[in-house]
């Protein structure tokens, strides 16, 4: 058990946690009865996927992807770019970070729309519980 943890779980711990968080979010989307809890699960699902992508950019012993020194006379030239490339092992890969920046902003937009829809549903049916909602929708006349 301890050996399994040290050899299999510990080197890939980020990936294990990303799968666990994703399943927690999916379970909430399927099994929870309250619509706000479902939306919360959706947000957790989304952060799990972002965790996966950011984990791809991690390197051992790497620091934040900010270049401290470029020689002034060489800045902006091909020589400067190749100098930075020579030290690329020391920096985390910034490409997944930039992609996930977009995903976070889109995520908060979908969260806002989902919560606005929740408020509309509450105004119409006076409940946010899924079972009550289904009962009230079934009780509606057909031509509504």
């Amino acid at each position: 058990m301890v050996e399994f943890f040290l050899n299999t779980v510990k080197p890939n711990f980020n990936y294990w946690v990303y799968v666990i968080l994703m399943m927690v979010g999916l379970w909430s989307l399927i099994a929870k009865n309250n619509l706000i809890k479902k939306i919360m699960g959706l947000a957790i699902f989304q952060t799990a996927i972002i965790l996966f992508y950011v984990s791809l950019g991690v390197k051992d012993g790497a620091t934040i992807p900010v270049l401290e020194q470029v020689p002034v006379e060489a800045a902006g030239t091909v020589a400067a770019a190749s100098t930075a490339g020579a030290f690329a092992d020391g920096f985390a890969n910034p490409v997944p970070h930039v992609l996930m920046l977009t995903a976070i902003v889109v995520g908060v937009a979908t969260l806002g729309v989902a919560l606005a829809l929740c408020q509309t549903i509450f105004k119409e049916f006076d409940t946010l519980e899924e079972d009550e909602l289904l009962r009230k929708i079934k009780a509606l006349p057909d031509d509504v």
């Binding site: 706000i36 919360m40 947000a43 952060t47 972002i50 950011v54 984990s55 950019g57 991690v58 790497a62 620091t63 934040i64 992807p65 900010v66 920096f91 985390a92 910034p94 970070h97 930039v98 996930m100 920046l101 976070i104 902003v105 995520g107 908060v108 969260l111 806002g112 919560l115 929740c118 408020q119």
Partner: peptide, 27 residues
Amino acid sequence: EMGAVDVAFTEATVGAGISTVLFIATI
């Protein structure tokens, strides 16, 4: 901690700030 500082401050403002405000307003 994973070196994604730009994602970190976006998450602090948007994920922890704005989404909490949206949740509380809805509740």
